[in-house]
Protein backbone atom coordinates (compact mmCIF):
# COMPACT_ATOMS: atom_id res chain seq x y z
CA UNK A 1 0.00 0.00 0.00
CA UNK A 2 2.78 2.39 0.96
CA UNK A 3 4.61 1.53 -2.23
CA UNK A 4 1.52 2.25 -4.29
CA UNK A 5 0.96 5.55 -2.50
CA UNK A 6 4.58 6.49 -3.01
CA UNK A 7 4.34 5.63 -6.69
CA UNK A 8 1.10 7.56 -7.08
CA UNK A 9 2.77 10.60 -5.57
CA UNK A 10 5.64 10.24 -8.03
CA UNK A 11 3.08 9.83 -10.78
CA UNK A 12 1.39 13.09 -9.84
CA UNK A 13 4.75 14.87 -9.87
CA UNK A 14 5.61 13.47 -13.27
CA UNK A 15 2.07 14.16 -14.51
CA UNK A 16 2.28 17.78 -13.42
CA UNK A 17 5.28 18.35 -15.67
CA UNK A 18 3.47 16.57 -18.52
CA UNK A 19 0.51 18.82 -17.89
CA UNK A 20 2.65 21.97 -18.04
CA UNK A 21 4.19 20.90 -21.34
CA UNK A 22 0.83 19.86 -22.78
CA UNK A 23 -1.03 23.01 -21.70
CA UNK A 24 1.30 25.12 -23.84
CA UNK A 25 0.88 22.73 -26.73
CA UNK A 26 -2.86 22.89 -26.30
CA UNK A 27 -2.86 26.68 -26.02
CA UNK A 28 -1.03 27.05 -29.35
CA UNK A 29 -3.28 24.53 -31.04
CA UNK A 30 -6.43 26.17 -29.64
CA UNK A 31 -5.44 29.65 -30.79
CA UNK A 32 -3.41 29.07 -33.94
CA UNK A 33 -4.49 25.60 -35.04
CA UNK A 34 -0.83 24.56 -35.13
CA UNK A 35 0.70 21.44 -33.63
CA UNK A 36 4.05 22.82 -32.56
CA UNK A 37 6.59 20.04 -32.82
CA UNK A 38 9.36 22.31 -31.50
CA UNK A 39 7.53 22.74 -28.20
CA UNK A 40 9.60 20.00 -26.55
CA UNK A 41 12.83 21.76 -27.50
CA UNK A 42 11.69 24.86 -25.61
CA UNK A 43 11.32 22.59 -22.57
CA UNK A 44 14.81 21.22 -23.18
CA UNK A 45 16.38 24.64 -23.80
CA UNK A 46 14.84 26.01 -20.58
CA UNK A 47 16.67 23.33 -18.60
CA UNK A 48 19.97 23.80 -20.51
CA UNK A 49 19.94 27.59 -20.11
CA UNK A 50 19.33 27.20 -16.37
CA UNK A 51 22.22 24.77 -16.15
CA UNK A 52 24.45 27.14 -18.10
CA UNK A 53 23.53 30.15 -15.95
CA UNK A 54 24.13 28.28 -12.68
CA UNK A 55 27.46 26.83 -13.86
CA UNK A 56 28.92 29.74 -15.82
CA UNK A 57 27.62 32.67 -13.77
CA UNK A 58 27.10 31.03 -10.42
CA UNK A 59 23.44 31.99 -10.33
CA UNK A 60 21.17 30.08 -7.95
CA UNK A 61 18.74 27.49 -9.34
CA UNK A 62 15.78 29.80 -8.72
CA UNK A 63 17.29 32.90 -10.35
CA UNK A 64 18.81 30.91 -13.18
CA UNK A 65 15.43 29.27 -13.76
CA UNK A 66 13.51 32.54 -13.77
CA UNK A 67 15.92 34.15 -16.22
CA UNK A 68 15.81 31.03 -18.39
CA UNK A 69 11.99 31.20 -18.56
CA UNK A 70 12.26 34.83 -19.67
CA UNK A 71 14.86 33.98 -22.31
CA UNK A 72 12.80 31.08 -23.65
CA UNK A 73 9.78 33.40 -23.96
CA UNK A 74 11.91 35.72 -26.10
CA UNK A 75 13.28 32.78 -28.12
CA UNK A 76 9.67 31.64 -28.69
CA UNK A 77 8.72 35.10 -29.97
CA UNK A 78 11.57 34.95 -32.46
CA UNK A 79 10.80 31.39 -33.59
CA UNK A 80 7.16 32.31 -34.20
CA UNK A 81 8.09 35.44 -36.14
CA UNK A 82 10.64 33.64 -38.29
CA UNK A 83 9.33 30.13 -38.88
CA UNK A 84 5.62 29.87 -38.03
CA UNK A 85 3.84 33.21 -38.49
CA UNK A 86 4.81 33.83 -42.12
CA UNK A 87 3.43 30.47 -43.30
CA UNK A 88 0.49 30.20 -40.93
CA UNK A 89 -2.25 30.84 -43.46
CA UNK A 90 -0.86 28.63 -46.19
CA UNK A 91 -2.18 25.22 -45.09
CA UNK A 92 -2.14 23.21 -41.90
CA UNK A 93 0.85 21.08 -42.91
CA UNK A 94 3.38 23.90 -43.52
CA UNK A 95 3.63 25.24 -39.96
CA UNK A 96 3.72 21.69 -38.63
CA UNK A 97 6.63 20.75 -40.90
CA UNK A 98 8.37 24.00 -40.17
CA UNK A 99 8.11 23.37 -36.43
CA UNK A 100 9.43 19.85 -37.01
CA UNK A 101 12.47 21.34 -38.72
CA UNK A 102 12.89 23.82 -35.87
CA UNK A 103 12.82 20.98 -33.38
CA UNK A 104 15.71 19.20 -35.10
CA UNK A 105 17.71 22.40 -35.57
CA UNK A 106 17.35 23.35 -31.89
CA UNK A 107 18.24 19.89 -30.60
CA UNK A 108 21.34 19.80 -32.80
CA UNK A 109 22.31 23.30 -31.81
CA UNK A 110 22.22 22.36 -28.13
CA UNK A 111 24.15 19.19 -28.84
CA UNK A 112 26.78 21.25 -30.69
CA UNK A 113 27.14 23.70 -27.82
CA UNK A 114 26.84 21.41 -24.79
CA UNK A 115 27.72 17.99 -26.20
CA UNK A 116 25.64 14.83 -26.36
CA UNK A 117 26.55 13.56 -22.90
CA UNK A 118 23.89 13.75 -20.24
CA UNK A 119 24.21 16.72 -17.91
CA UNK A 120 22.99 17.37 -14.39
CA UNK A 121 21.07 20.37 -13.15
CA UNK A 122 21.31 20.31 -9.36
CA UNK A 123 18.59 21.94 -7.29
CA UNK A 124 18.89 23.11 -3.69
CA UNK A 125 15.49 21.49 -3.00
CA UNK A 126 16.53 17.86 -3.22
CA UNK A 127 16.48 17.24 0.51
CA UNK A 128 14.16 14.32 1.24
CA UNK A 129 11.30 14.80 3.67
CA UNK A 130 9.47 11.86 5.17
CA UNK A 131 5.76 12.24 5.80
CA UNK A 132 4.03 9.16 7.29
CA UNK A 133 6.32 6.74 5.50
CA UNK A 134 6.11 8.65 2.18
CA UNK A 135 9.42 9.92 0.91
CA UNK A 136 9.00 13.32 -0.68
CA UNK A 137 11.56 15.87 -1.74
CA UNK A 138 11.11 19.61 -1.65
CA UNK A 139 11.71 19.59 -5.40
CA UNK A 140 8.74 17.30 -5.97
CA UNK A 141 6.53 19.43 -3.76
CA UNK A 142 7.81 22.49 -5.63
CA UNK A 143 6.75 20.88 -8.91
CA UNK A 144 3.22 20.26 -7.63
CA UNK A 145 2.86 23.70 -6.07
CA UNK A 146 4.30 25.52 -9.09
CA UNK A 147 2.21 23.42 -11.45
CA UNK A 148 -1.03 24.22 -9.65
CA UNK A 149 -0.16 27.91 -9.27
CA UNK A 150 0.81 28.32 -12.90
CA UNK A 151 -2.25 26.55 -14.24
CA UNK A 152 -4.58 28.60 -12.00
CA UNK A 153 -2.81 31.78 -13.09
CA UNK A 154 -3.03 30.79 -16.75
CA UNK A 155 -6.75 30.09 -16.46
CA UNK A 156 -7.28 33.42 -14.74
CA UNK A 157 -5.27 35.25 -17.41
CA UNK A 158 -7.28 33.64 -20.20
CA UNK A 159 -10.62 34.20 -18.51
CA UNK A 160 -10.36 37.71 -17.16
CA UNK A 161 -7.49 39.75 -18.56
CA UNK A 162 -7.39 41.82 -21.71
CA UNK A 163 -4.71 39.66 -23.31
CA UNK A 164 -6.78 36.58 -22.40
CA UNK A 165 -9.84 38.00 -24.11
CA UNK A 166 -7.75 38.89 -27.14
CA UNK A 167 -6.38 35.33 -27.27
CA UNK A 168 -9.86 33.81 -27.02
CA UNK A 169 -11.34 36.21 -29.56
CA UNK A 170 -8.59 35.41 -32.06
CA UNK A 171 -9.08 31.68 -31.58
CA UNK A 172 -12.87 31.92 -32.05
CA UNK A 173 -13.09 34.23 -35.05
CA UNK A 174 -9.99 35.70 -36.55
CA UNK A 175 -11.88 37.89 -39.05
CA UNK A 176 -13.99 39.45 -36.34
CA UNK A 177 -10.88 39.87 -34.21
CA UNK A 178 -9.20 41.92 -36.91
CA UNK A 179 -12.38 43.99 -37.30
CA UNK A 180 -12.32 44.98 -33.61
CA UNK A 181 -8.71 46.04 -34.03
CA UNK A 182 -6.81 42.95 -32.90
CA UNK A 183 -3.51 42.39 -34.68
CA UNK A 184 -3.75 38.61 -34.95
CA UNK A 185 -0.13 38.01 -35.88
CA UNK A 186 0.97 39.78 -32.70
CA UNK A 187 -1.55 37.70 -30.75
CA UNK A 188 -0.02 34.52 -32.16
CA UNK A 189 3.39 35.71 -31.04
CA UNK A 190 2.11 36.24 -27.49
CA UNK A 191 0.52 32.78 -27.47
CA UNK A 192 3.79 31.25 -28.58
CA UNK A 193 5.66 33.14 -25.88
CA UNK A 194 3.30 32.05 -23.11
CA UNK A 195 3.44 28.43 -24.28
CA UNK A 196 7.24 28.54 -24.54
CA UNK A 197 7.49 29.90 -21.02
CA UNK A 198 5.30 27.06 -19.72
CA UNK A 199 7.45 24.48 -21.50
CA UNK A 200 10.66 25.99 -20.16
CA UNK A 201 9.26 26.09 -16.63
CA UNK A 202 8.33 22.45 -16.87
CA UNK A 203 11.80 21.48 -18.07
CA UNK A 204 13.51 23.49 -15.36
CA UNK A 205 11.34 21.94 -12.64
CA UNK A 206 11.77 18.36 -13.85
CA UNK A 207 15.46 18.56 -14.81
CA UNK A 208 16.89 18.02 -11.28
CA UNK A 209 15.02 14.67 -11.14
CA UNK A 210 16.33 13.43 -14.47
CA UNK A 211 19.36 13.91 -16.70
CA UNK A 212 19.64 16.62 -19.34
CA UNK A 213 20.30 15.48 -22.87
CA UNK A 214 19.72 17.28 -26.20
CA UNK A 215 16.95 14.95 -27.38
CA UNK A 216 14.93 15.14 -24.14
CA UNK A 217 12.55 17.51 -25.94
CA UNK A 218 11.33 14.92 -28.41
CA UNK A 219 10.60 12.49 -25.57
CA UNK A 220 8.64 15.22 -23.82
CA UNK A 221 6.70 16.26 -26.91
CA UNK A 222 5.48 12.71 -27.53
CA UNK A 223 4.18 12.62 -23.96
CA UNK A 224 2.71 16.05 -24.58
CA UNK A 225 0.84 14.82 -27.66
CA UNK A 226 -0.55 11.83 -25.75
CA UNK A 227 -1.70 14.12 -22.94
CA UNK A 228 -3.27 16.59 -25.35
CA UNK A 229 -5.17 13.83 -27.14
CA UNK A 230 -6.21 12.38 -23.78
CA UNK A 231 -7.36 15.71 -22.35
CA UNK A 232 -8.85 17.12 -25.53
CA UNK A 233 -7.17 19.49 -28.00
CA UNK A 234 -7.36 23.13 -27.02
CA UNK A 235 -8.46 22.49 -23.44
CA UNK A 236 -6.01 23.68 -20.80
CA UNK A 237 -7.67 22.02 -17.82
CA UNK A 238 -7.89 18.90 -19.98
CA UNK A 239 -4.13 19.08 -20.52
CA UNK A 240 -3.45 19.20 -16.79
CA UNK A 241 -5.87 16.39 -15.92
CA UNK A 242 -4.60 14.37 -18.89
CA UNK A 243 -1.04 14.92 -17.65
CA UNK A 244 -1.89 13.72 -14.15
CA UNK A 245 -3.68 10.65 -15.55
CA UNK A 246 -0.78 9.72 -17.82
CA UNK A 247 1.81 10.28 -15.08
CA UNK A 248 -0.12 8.09 -12.65
CA UNK A 249 -0.82 5.42 -15.28
CA UNK A 250 2.90 5.26 -16.10
CA UNK A 251 4.13 4.77 -12.55
CA UNK A 252 1.41 2.26 -11.73
CA UNK A 253 2.29 0.28 -14.83
CA UNK A 254 5.95 0.44 -13.88
CA UNK A 255 5.13 -0.78 -10.37
CA UNK A 256 3.07 -3.78 -11.43
CA UNK A 257 4.53 -4.80 -14.79
CA UNK A 258 8.09 -3.54 -14.55
CA UNK A 259 9.57 -0.26 -15.71
CA UNK A 260 10.01 -1.57 -19.26
CA UNK A 261 6.25 -1.19 -19.76
CA UNK A 262 6.13 2.35 -18.42
CA UNK A 263 6.23 4.11 -21.77
CA UNK A 264 3.99 1.59 -23.51
CA UNK A 265 0.91 2.47 -21.50
CA UNK A 266 0.84 6.00 -22.92
CA UNK A 267 0.64 4.72 -26.49
CA UNK A 268 -2.06 2.23 -25.59
CA UNK A 269 -4.05 5.07 -24.02
CA UNK A 270 -3.40 7.19 -27.12
CA UNK A 271 -4.78 4.58 -29.51
CA UNK A 272 -7.71 3.75 -27.24
CA UNK A 273 -8.71 7.41 -26.94
CA UNK A 274 -8.39 7.95 -30.68
CA UNK A 275 -10.68 4.98 -31.32
CA UNK A 276 -13.32 5.48 -28.64
CA UNK A 277 -13.22 9.13 -27.69
CA UNK A 278 -11.44 11.12 -30.39
CA UNK A 279 -12.41 14.46 -28.86
CA UNK A 280 -10.50 13.55 -25.69
CA UNK A 281 -11.92 13.44 -22.18
CA UNK A 282 -12.53 17.20 -21.99
CA UNK A 283 -12.43 18.27 -25.61
CA UNK A 284 -15.28 20.02 -27.33
CA UNK A 285 -17.12 18.20 -30.04
CA UNK A 286 -16.97 20.14 -33.26
CA UNK A 287 -20.38 21.71 -33.64
Amino acid sequence: MDLLLQQLFNGVVLGMTYGLVASGLSLIFGIMGVLNFAHGELYMIGAYITMFLTKAYGLSYVWGGLIAVGLVVIISFVLERVAIGPILNRDYMSPFLSSFALSIILANLIQYVFGANPKRLPSPFEIPIEVKGLILTQQKILIIVCGIAVILALNLVIKSTKIGKILRATSQNVTAASLVGINSSRTYMYAFGIAGGLAALSGILLAPLINLYPTMGSTAIIKGFIVVVLGGLGSISGAVIGGLLLGSAEVITATFFGSGWKDVVGYIILIAILIWKPTGLFGKTSD
Binding site: K162, K165, I166, R168, A169, Q172, N173, T175, A176, A177, L179, V180, G181, I182
Partner: peptide, 17 residues
Protein backbone atom coordinates in the same frame (compact mmCIF):
# COMPACT_ATOMS: atom_id res chain seq x y z
CA UNK B 1 -19.24 37.12 -37.01
CA UNK B 2 -19.50 37.23 -33.22
CA UNK B 3 -17.13 35.52 -30.81
CA UNK B 4 -19.48 32.58 -30.20
CA UNK B 5 -18.01 31.18 -26.97
CA UNK B 6 -17.74 34.59 -25.34
CA UNK B 7 -20.48 36.42 -23.46
CA UNK B 8 -22.46 39.30 -24.90
CA UNK B 9 -20.64 41.65 -22.52
CA UNK B 10 -17.25 40.32 -23.62
CA UNK B 11 -18.19 40.72 -27.27
CA UNK B 12 -19.13 44.34 -26.66
CA UNK B 13 -16.05 44.95 -24.56
CA UNK B 14 -13.83 43.71 -27.39
CA UNK B 15 -15.60 46.14 -29.69
CA UNK B 16 -14.18 48.90 -27.49
CA UNK B 17 -10.65 47.56 -27.67
Amino acid sequence: QLFPEMTVAENLELGGL
